[in-house]
Nucleic acid binder design. Structure first.
Ligand code: FES
Ligand code: FES
Lengths: 134, 134
DNA sequence: TTATAATGATACCATTTTAGTATCATTCTG
DNA sequence: CAGAATGATACTAAAATGGTATCATTATAA
């Protein structure tokens, strides 16, 4: 059961890193040093985060990435959706074949309940909630 | 987010099928007819179910597979474990690197909570509960 | 104004996991 | 013994994931 894929995980850490100094512009190199993530891969990740508006990029010398939102507004669920697609648990294989009435299929009902719970939990996690140290 | 992989799904359906006539010995061919699962693949699945003691096989002419347990005792969680490994949500990537104290990492705590919920839900689903039609 | 340091865009490759096949051995029944 | 079934196991195919490479663009500063 994989909940977070690697790029989501990387994204989370990178953002946590950046959240520690909100004003600083981080170059990819700096972030990789701290995090030991393959550099070109992290670049790709940051580029997507930029498109998503979670991070802001500036080009050229002295450029790099900064958070575009407050950590408390960055939801784990949003990161997961960006990197892993919609938060949906897989459909069943035999659509109508087996299940006479998909609306009443007890397996699907159960799966949907699980999904609802998982998703609502994920939606409650923000980067902000992750970095406030204990 | 994939909860059930294909072979688990196939296994569930095959078992549901078999549960409808508990005394009948099903040949693989019969099951594939009903279910449209690639025959050799279903064989492999049934062989594993046999090893797990969920299904009983008899060889030779007139042989095939029967359920070895009552549907109400066959848990979805057990099938998932058999086909997909332990019901554990992925560990984080940077073991000790980032997380100063894994016991206190709020992300991990959250993930663990989600995992506990999912697993306990899955443990409550049996084939029996799936086949009692509404 | 040009060299350089940064990201943007994108195509490509590698690895791992999942899905599915093929084959031969074994066993049971008639 | 013939044939119908599964047992065991090795192999292949396809998809998802993880990671590289490359060239274009932009900004800074000597
Ligand atoms: S057919 Fe998909 S859960 Fe019932
Ligand atoms: S390091 Fe894994 S969840 Fe904190």
């Amino acid at each position: 059961m994989k909940l977070l894929t690697r790029n989501t995980d990387y994204a989370v850490r990178a953002i946590c890193c950046m959240a520690s100094k909100p004003e600083k512009v981080f170059t990819v190199a700096e972030l990789t040093n701290g995090l030991k993530i393959p550099r070109p891969f992290l670049r790709k990740i940051l580029q997507l985060l930029n498109k998503e508006g979670i991070v802001r990029s500036t080009k050229g010398l002295g450029g790099g990435f900064t958070l575009a939102m407050k950590p408390s507004r960055i939801f784990l669920s949003v990161l997961m959706e960006a990197f892993q697609g919609p938060l949906k648990i897989n459909e069943c294989i035999f659509k109508k074949k087996i299940c006479p009435d998909i609306g009443r299929c007890p397996l699907r009902r159960k799966i949907n309940m699980i999904e609802d719970h998982v998703v609502s939990e994920l939606r409650s996690v923000t980067i902000g909630s992750l970095i406030k140290k204990g």
